[in-house]
Measured scan of single mutants.
Amino acid sequence: TEEVEKIVRELQKRGVSQEEIQRILKRNGIDPRDVEHVVRRLR
């Protein structure tokens, strides 16, 4: 989703690792598959 993408991009800008990003998003109830998808697209 748009929202997830924004969050991921923001965290990446701050130098947060992929694993940490995924952990944060999972904690916020976001589907890990969505996270994977977004992270892969932004690489």
Rank of each mutant, 00 (worst) to 15 (best):
T1H: 11
T1F: 13
T1I: 14
T1P: 10
T1N: 08
T1D: 08
T1Q: 09
T1G: 07
T1A: 10
T1W: 13
E2C: 15
E2T: 08
E2H: 11
E2S: 10
E2G: 09
E2I: 10
E2A: 12
E3T: 10
E3N: 11
E3W: 13
E3I: 11
E3L: 12
E3C: 15
E3P: 05
E3M: 11
E3Q: 10
E3D: 10
E3G: 06
E3V: 10
E3A: 11
E3H: 11
E3F: 13
V4G: 01
V4Q: 02
V4N: 01
V4F: 05
V4H: 02
V4M: 07
V4R: 01
V4W: 06
V4T: 04
V4L: 15
E5W: 15
E5D: 05
E5A: 08
E5F: 14
E5Q: 04
E5N: 04
K6M: 09
K6E: 06
K6D: 05
K6N: 06
K6H: 08
K6I: 07
K6R: 12
I7P: 00
I7L: 12
I7F: 10
I7Y: 10
I7S: 03
I7D: 01
I7R: 07
I7A: 09
I7T: 05
I7Q: 08
V8E: 00
V8M: 06
V8R: 01
V8N: 00
V8D: 00
V8C: 12
V8L: 07
V8W: 10
V8K: 01
V8G: 01
R9H: 03
R9Q: 04
R9G: 02
R9P: 00
R9T: 04
R9C: 14
R9V: 05
R9L: 06
R9D: 03
E10A: 13
E10C: 15
E10Q: 12
E10F: 13
E10W: 13
E10G: 09
E10T: 11
E10P: 01
E10N: 08
E10K: 11
L11K: 00
L11A: 03
L11G: 00
L11Q: 00
L11R: 00
L11V: 00
L11P: 00
L11Y: 05
L11I: 01
L11S: 00
L11N: 00
L11M: 10
Q12R: 11
Q12N: 08
Q12G: 04
Q12F: 15
Q12A: 12
Q12P: 00
Q12Y: 15
Q12L: 15
Q12K: 08
Q12W: 15
K13H: 07
K13L: 11
K13Q: 10
K13W: 08
K13A: 10
K13F: 08
K13T: 07
R14N: 08
R14Y: 09
R14I: 07
R14G: 05
R14H: 07
R14E: 06
G15C: 14
G15Q: 04
G15I: 02
G15Y: 04
G15M: 04
G15N: 06
G15S: 03
G15T: 01
G15K: 06
G15P: 02
G15E: 02
G15L: 04
V16F: 12
V16M: 12
V16D: 01
V16W: 13
V16I: 11
V16H: 11
V16N: 04
S17I: 03
S17K: 06
S17D: 08
S17L: 05
S17E: 04
S17N: 07
S17W: 03
S17C: 13
S17G: 07
Q18P: 12
Q18C: 15
Q18L: 15
Q18Y: 15
Q18W: 15
Q18G: 09
Q18V: 15
Q18F: 15
Q18H: 11
E19S: 11
E19A: 11
E19F: 11
E19P: 06
E19G: 09
E19I: 09
E19D: 11
E20D: 10
E20C: 15
E20P: 00
E20L: 07
E20Y: 08
E20K: 07
E20A: 09
E20S: 07
E20M: 10
I21Q: 01
I21H: 00
I21Y: 04
I21F: 09
I21C: 14
I21L: 07
I21A: 04
I21S: 00
I21G: 00
I21R: 00
I21W: 09
I21T: 01
I21D: 00
I21K: 00
I21M: 10
Q22G: 09
Q22P: 03
Q22V: 15
Q22F: 15
Q22M: 15
Q22I: 15
Q22N: 06
Q22L: 14
Q22S: 11
Q22E: 10
Q22A: 12
R23F: 08
R23N: 10
R23P: 00
R23V: 08
R23Q: 10
R23Y: 10
R23C: 15
R23T: 09
R23D: 06
R23A: 10
I24Q: 06
I24G: 00
I24N: 01
I24C: 13
I24T: 05
I24F: 09
I24S: 02
L25H: 00
L25D: 00
L25T: 01
L25K: 00
L25C: 14
L25A: 02
L25W: 00
K26W: 13
K26P: 00
K26S: 12
K26G: 07
K26L: 15
K26E: 10
K26N: 07
K26I: 14
K26R: 12
K26A: 12
R27T: 05
R27P: 01
R27I: 09
R27G: 06
R27S: 09
R27K: 09
R27D: 06
R27Q: 08
R27M: 12
R27F: 09
R27N: 06
R27V: 07
R27L: 11
N28V: 13
N28S: 13
N28E: 12
N28K: 14
N28M: 14
N28F: 14
N28Y: 14
N28G: 08
N28L: 14
G29E: 02
G29Q: 02
G29C: 10
G29D: 03
G29M: 03
G29A: 02
G29W: 03
I30S: 02
I30R: 02
I30F: 14
I30C: 13
I30M: 08
I30G: 01
I30E: 01
I30Y: 14
D31Q: 03
D31G: 02
D31M: 03
D31E: 04
D31V: 02
D31C: 04
D31S: 07
D31P: 06
D31A: 05
D31I: 02
D31R: 04
P32G: 04
P32H: 03
P32S: 05
P32Q: 04
P32R: 02
P32E: 07
P32L: 05
P32M: 05
P32T: 03
R33Y: 05
R33A: 11
R33W: 06
R33P: 02
R33E: 09
R33F: 05
R33S: 08
R33T: 06
R33I: 09
R33Q: 08
R33N: 08
R33K: 12
D34K: 10
D34V: 15
D34P: 01
D34F: 13
D34W: 13
D34N: 05
D34A: 10
D34Q: 12
V35S: 02
V35F: 09
V35C: 13
V35D: 12
V35K: 01
V35A: 05
V35P: 01
V35W: 12
V35Y: 12
V35T: 02
V35R: 01
V35M: 04
V35N: 01
E36D: 07
E36L: 07
E36Y: 06
E36F: 04
E36V: 05
E36M: 08
E36A: 11
E36I: 06
E36R: 06
E36G: 03
E36H: 04
E36P: 02
E36Q: 06
H37N: 13
H37G: 09
H37K: 13
H37F: 11
H37S: 13
H37Y: 12
H37D: 15
H37P: 02
H37T: 13
V38A: 07
V38Q: 01
V38N: 01
V38G: 01
V38P: 00
V38M: 06
V38F: 04
V38I: 14
V39T: 07
V39S: 03
V39C: 15
V39L: 15
V39I: 15
V39N: 03
R40H: 11
R40P: 08
R40M: 03
R40I: 11
R40A: 09
R40F: 01
R40Y: 01
R41N: 08
R41P: 02
R41M: 13
R41T: 04
R41S: 06
R41C: 15
R41W: 05
R41I: 07
R41G: 05
R41H: 10
R41F: 09
L42W: 02
L42K: 04
L42T: 05
L42S: 05
L42R: 07
L42E: 03
L42A: 06
L42D: 03
L42V: 09
R43P: 08
R43W: 14
R43T: 12
R43D: 11
R43F: 15
R43E: 14
R43M: 15
R43N: 13
R43I: 12
